[in-house]
């Protein structure tokens, strides 16, 4: 490779780093200015002690976790079954999984509101349970491309037909094979799909807002209209949360099944020193 030192490249990388970091620093600095004349964490205290925040955040966490569970239960067995038994239907399943990249969330929720409105056969929008179902279903749909890709990539990495044959020759039923052999081997793929789903749904605005649910996204927008410093504090918190999730995800992705945490550390250290 060409390893010459190029001043042009240094300028470009510096400018990019400035563009990336200055808004983060500005937001952090702004979030500390709630108390006049001195820096304080008042904005964070004010947000975190607010009941409305706690309710909205809890709602979104629960909805996101529900979307993860539904998504994994729906996609993992399907991806397995398509690879094992129905390879001819793979294009159809892939097409459906990637469709949400083409359908914007606002269009999707528009169709759902009309299709499940008060005059339809399945009037989901008229009850609270129904609207919550639509929120979770919407989150499953918008994270479908990421969840499917994560799980399908995970499945490509293990030899599912051999694993299945081995399990069957030992007398395991189909469900038992999936639950005790396939799913554990997909753990890191599922975890990375789950974190992506979580980070997409937690601050999601359009679906929750149009279905009138008290979720975190609509709360953030409202807060942005009412307050000055708290939104900056929440932007920092949500960025930090995303970083933590990414870190956890990477740790899981690098870890092999049954490997101990400590051992991974030492081997990672050995790798970086070479």
């Amino acid at each position: 490779m060409n390893r010459k030192f190029r001043p042009g490249a240094v300028i470009i990388v510096t400018l990019a780093c400035l563009y990336f970091l200055v808004p983060l620093y500005a937001t952090f600095q702004f979030s500390l200015q709630m108390r006049r004349g001195e820096l304080s964490f008042d904005a964070y205290r004010s947000v975190l002690s607010s009941d409305v925040f706690l309710r909205a955040f809890t709602y979104s966490v629960v909805a996101s976790i529900a979307a993860i569970i539904v998504g994994v239960l729906l996609i993992a067995p399907t991806a397995y079954w398509v690879r094992l038994r129905l390879p001819k239907l793979r294009p159809l399943v892939e097409f459906l999984s990637f469709l949400p990249l083409i359908i914007p969330a606002v269009v999707l929720v528009f169709g759902q509101i009309r299709l499940f409105g008060s005059s339809s056969i399945l009037p989901l929008t008229t009850t609270e349970i129904g609207t919550n179902t639509l929120v979770v279903a919407g989150y499953v749909v918008i994270s479908l491309p990421y969840m499917y890709r994560a799980i399908d990539n995970g499945m490509a990495a293990i030899d599912i037909s051999t694993l299945t044959e081995a399990a069957e020759s030992l007398g395991a039923s189909r469900l038992r094979t999936i639950a005790t052999v396939i799913l554990p081997n997909l753990r890191s793929a599922i975890v990375s799909g789950a974190f992506l789903t979580f980070s997409i749904s937690l601050g999601e605005f359009v679906i929750a807002s149009l279905l009138n649910r008290p979720a975190f996204g609509p709360y953030l927008v409202q807060l942005g209209e009412d307050r000055a410093y708290e939104p900056a504090a929440l932007a920092i918190l949500s960025f930090a949360l995303t970083w933590v999730l990414m870190g956890v995800m990477q740790a899981f992705a690098l870890r092999k099944p049954n490997q101990r945490w400590l051992r991974r550390r030492t081997s990672a250290a050995g790798k970086s020193s070479t």
Binding site: L74, I75, P77, T78, W81, V82, R85, L86, L89, V93, L96, L99, P100, I103, V107, L108, F110, G111, Q112, R114, L115, L134, A137, G138, V140, V141, L144
Partner: peptide, 22 residues
């Protein structure tokens, strides 16, 4: 084919049918 019913059903109900309606 039955194994695909949950996924296809979900995709139809919450993705294909709403878009088709529009």
């Amino acid at each position: 084919l039955l194994g695909l019913v949950p996924f296809l059903g979900f995709a139809f109900l919450f993705l294909v049918a709403p878009v088709f309606y529009l």
